[in-house]
Amino acid sequence: MDTTVNGEFAPRNTYLDTASHGLLPARAVAAVREAATDIAEGRVDMVAWLDAVRQAREAFGRLVGLPPERVATGAAVASHVSLVAHTVPPGAEVLCAQQEFSSVVTPFAQRGARLRAVPLEALADEVRAGTALVAVSAAQSLDGRRADLPAIREAAARHGARTLVDTTQATGWLRLAAGDFDFTVCAGYKWLLCPRGVSFLTVPADGGGLTALNAGWVAGEEPWHSTYGPVERLASSARRFDEGPAFLSWVAGARSLALLAGLDAARIEAHDLALARRFRRGLDRIGRPAVPGDSAVVSVPGLGDAVPRLKAAGVRTAARGGLLRAAFHLYNTERDVDRALDVLGDVLAHEVRRPGGG
């Protein structure tokens, strides 16, 4: 990536764990420090901070190809999914992938929907006339596998089912159009390089039948005139589904999203995938192939126990379901990939030399 981007990040380790949490760019760190100092010194400016939410909404819309009027903001994916879950009648079928991330499916279970989990690769084929909604992550949190979104979208349309896509592990490295689906949700603290507390929901132009269950003053058509008593007029846009913002998160998030929206999305995708493919080839050479796929998230069966030893050597990855999970983003380089492979090779060699090793 270009030198401007490189100057925004300063990891002190080999950081390959964006799938758990992305790194904050320098501009976001500066923004949150300034805002926190303003709070400490009595220069609170809620008008400016609320405007940061607007800026973030607009930048996210540019990233996913939607106008800001179709983007709602909140703090967590589960809260957004809960709004969608309230549109599904109890007992109706919600089709999902096996081992789907819990925030995508639990709100439906809590509402009494009938969840039917099938293998990810079979999802499109399993849509049927009785399916009310298909809920799936664009890229799986567990192992990075990508859903066949065009096939799922086509199957859902053919059977009259709606679609909900969680793009948390995709938006920021994988180009996709949110408007292709009825609803999308996306937490910003991973590939969008925001703090926790920044999350987005996209809805159809007519709101998709959602009820603004979490509406407070920020959801009013005129927020500063909606601060007492029931809000008389909710926003005519998706902003009616907004939750009250955690301002420090959004002040930083607006800067991060502006950075990403100003970059070439195709270039980021190509960069991230090239590094992931390099890592996959290296894993093949050492005899520990990854879960098949073409994703910026790479998971390796049977190596979850190696994560602490990698961390001790300055390489940050994650363990999920017994898998070692590595993720590659715009601040990573080929040197990071090679460093991780070298350390992993040393770890495996030590296992072989250990008494009783294979």
Rank of each mutant, 00 (worst) to 15 (best):
L275I: 13
R285M: 10
A276M: 04
A266L: 11
I286E: 08
Y228E: 13
R267V: 09
V251K: 00
V251P: 02
R281I: 14
A238G: 14
P245N: 00
A258C: 00
P230N: 02
E243Q: 15
L248Q: 08
G293W: 02
R285S: 14
R240V: 14
G293F: 05
P230I: 14
E232P: 08
R255E: 15
D242W: 07
L259W: 04
R278E: 08
L234C: 09
S237P: 05
A270Y: 05
A238H: 02
D264M: 12
H271N: 09
R267H: 12
L263H: 02
S226D: 06
L263Q: 11
R281G: 02
L257M: 01
S236D: 15
A246Q: 09
D294R: 04
A235K: 00
D242K: 03
W250A: 03
L234H: 00
S237V: 15
L263R: 07
A246K: 02
L259A: 03
R240P: 10
P292D: 02
R288T: 13
R277Q: 13
Y228P: 01
E243R: 15
S237N: 07
A246Y: 13
D264E: 13
R285E: 15
G262N: 08
R239I: 14
L263S: 04
P245V: 11
D264P: 07
L273P: 06
A254N: 00
L263W: 00
R281D: 11
D294H: 06
D242L: 13
V231L: 03
A252C: 06
L257P: 01
P245R: 03
S295L: 02
R278C: 08
S249G: 03
A254I: 07
G262S: 06
A246D: 07
F247K: 00
A296M: 07
G282M: 12
H271I: 08
R288E: 14
A270D: 14
D242A: 12
L234N: 01
G287C: 10
G253C: 09
G253K: 06
T227H: 03
A254P: 00
R281P: 00
D284T: 11
R240Y: 01
L260C: 03
D294F: 06
R288V: 15
E243K: 12
D264R: 09
T227E: 13
Y228I: 08
A296F: 01
I286K: 11
L248H: 02
V231P: 06
P245T: 01
A258K: 02
L257S: 01
S237L: 09
S226W: 12
D294W: 06
P289M: 09
A274K: 08
R239T: 15
W250V: 05
I286D: 07
L275F: 09
F247W: 12
P230G: 04
F279G: 00
R280F: 05
R233F: 06
L263T: 13
L260G: 03
G293A: 00
P289V: 11
D284F: 01
D272A: 14
F247P: 08
D242N: 15
S295W: 05
A261S: 10
R278L: 14
E232A: 15
A270P: 05
A235S: 14
D294M: 04
A261F: 03
A266N: 10
S256C: 07
G244S: 08
R233G: 07
R281V: 15
L248D: 04
S237F: 07
A235N: 04
V251Y: 02
R255Y: 06
G282W: 13
R280Y: 04
L234E: 04
